[in-house]
């Protein structure tokens, strides 16, 4: 998948990670371990910048997915976002996390909007999906702000460092997205 670069205004930029971003990306993980630990199985597995570099290289090598992208705020890395894409069914899943000091400013929601425009307009997706741990109230709020519909609860579908957790599945269809913007 070709890399992306978007200027969302107000000093917010989204672009695909390159291996040169590994140090900064790892530093952000390292500064947010307590926040990530309840949700992300990869948090304890990310021990050095080399682990982050390996993730970036895997992401760049994927022909269909676009998993490794960063959100920068005023030139500082604030979070990570990505898409897993099922081209055959025209369905894609979005995932994200953001550093604690950047939370509560609507940055993730804005970036998701741009990803949805991209997925529907440029990738020809029919449906976007978002899964959030049922206990992760802030993450669920993003899906709700985006106008996604809660479709179900996938029991024990995510393994985290704190055990298995239920995932709430949200979906939005192309015509719903176009009607909402």
């Amino acid at each position: 998948m070709n890399p992306i670069y978007w200027d969302l205004g107000d000093g917010v930029e989204v672009r695909t990670f390159t291996p040169d971003d590994a140090e900064e990306s790892f530093a952000l993980v390292d500064a947010n371990r307590d926040r990530l630990h309840p949700w992300m199985i990869w948090e304890p597995q990310t021990r050095t910048a080399d682990d982050t570099r390996a993730f970036i290289l895997r992401s760049l090598a994927s022909e269909t997915d676009l998993e490794g992208n960063g959100i920068w705020v005023d030139g500082r890395l604030a979070g990570t976002m990505g898409l897993r894409i099922d081209p055959g069914d025209a369905n894609a899943e979005i995932g994200y996390w953001i550093g604690g000091e950047f939370e509560g400013r609507g940055i993730v929601t804005r970036a998701c909007r741009r990803f949805f425009d991209f997925a529907f307009d440029e990738l020809g997706m029919h449906r976007m999906e978002l899964c959030a741990a049922s206990e992760n109230v802030r993450s669920r709020a993003v899906a709700e702000r985006l106008g996604m519909r809660q479709e179900g609860v996938l029991r024990d579908a995510e393994r985290t460092p704190e055990g298995f957790k239920d995932l709430v599945i949200f979906g939005i269809l192309e015509d719903e997205w176009r009607a909402s913007r």
């Binding site: 029919h126 449906r127 999906e129 179900g152 029991r155």
Partner: peptide
């Protein structure tokens, strides 16, 4: 557990 709308 739910219905993934128009996922098929």
């Amino acid at each position: 557990e739910g219905v993934a709308r128009e996922e098929g």
